[in-house]
Amino acid sequence: MGTRSFLRYNENISKFLGILRSSSDIVSGETVAKELGITRSQVFKIVRKLQELGYRFERKRGYKLLFTPDIPFPWEIGQNIVFFNSIHSTQDEAKKLFEASKIKEDYWVLARTQTKGRGRMGRIWESPEGNFYGSVVLKAETPMRDIVKISLIGGISVFRTIKKHYEIDQEIKIKWPNDVWIILGDGKARKISGCIAEAFGEMEIAKYIILGIGVNVKVSPIDGVSICLKDITKKEVSLIDFVRKLKNELGTVWKEFSDGKWNQLKSEIENNMWRGRVKIKYDSREFEGISSGIAEDGSLLVQKDDATFESVYYGDVLIKVIS
């Protein structure tokens, strides 16, 4: 695979793996060919392709699947997946592919690694192999005023995925607007996930959103700052399994948002957000206060020391360490 070439969902590969996985025994090439309605040499081509990608088979008078690499190839996840082995940024690529009509709404662009993964405002997102990097195209004919709320959807989705499906001892919190943090026993916070969102459209109505999510699944890229799922579950985690779960959770959250359940989602964030003393930095202005809730429009409510509240829409929200 070259840097710019990508893999799409392939029905035959998906069915082939399905047949092998549902059988504990060797399946003959003839049986597979018959079930897929293709020739035996086409079956052989599929096997060769999968071997190149790291799958391993026992091949004696047929095929038996011995090993599946833990990489989110499209046929392991679902139909609306595009997969890159290595790419600059899933976010930039999703925009390009969507504008060139190569992918549609609800498609995910996934990558095994990113060479220029980005966080908010052009910052770098460290992207070693073993973690989740994906951007999804969401159709949203919504006023811009409401569109910023969509930025919070990625955070809730990651939060739900970890909370529902993984056993962890530590506290898990959403840090406004959409980071997910793990709170260690000593009260220190470590970042496990971050999101970036871009809205495209006309002046007041957004046409589509590209929501990018990065989750540290198997590797924690920055000591003392980040943490990964494997470290907190203290078990091996499957990236394929994580991607399937996150995709489902995001689908559910997106549906809730589209169905007008913003208030419930807002409460969910409020019930699970990191609260505490923060230092807000923007427009070369700084102030401190307590992050205390989410306003109706999705902004962060900070209670200042003079007991007044200020809504924060952007800028850096820094946790103030009280020592």
Binding site: R120, M121, K149, N178, I196, A197, E198, S299
Partner: peptide, 9 residues
């Protein structure tokens, strides 16, 4: 940029 959403105008 607002709430981590980047919006080209």
């Amino acid at each position: 940029e607002s709430m981590k959403m980047e919006i080209p105008v």
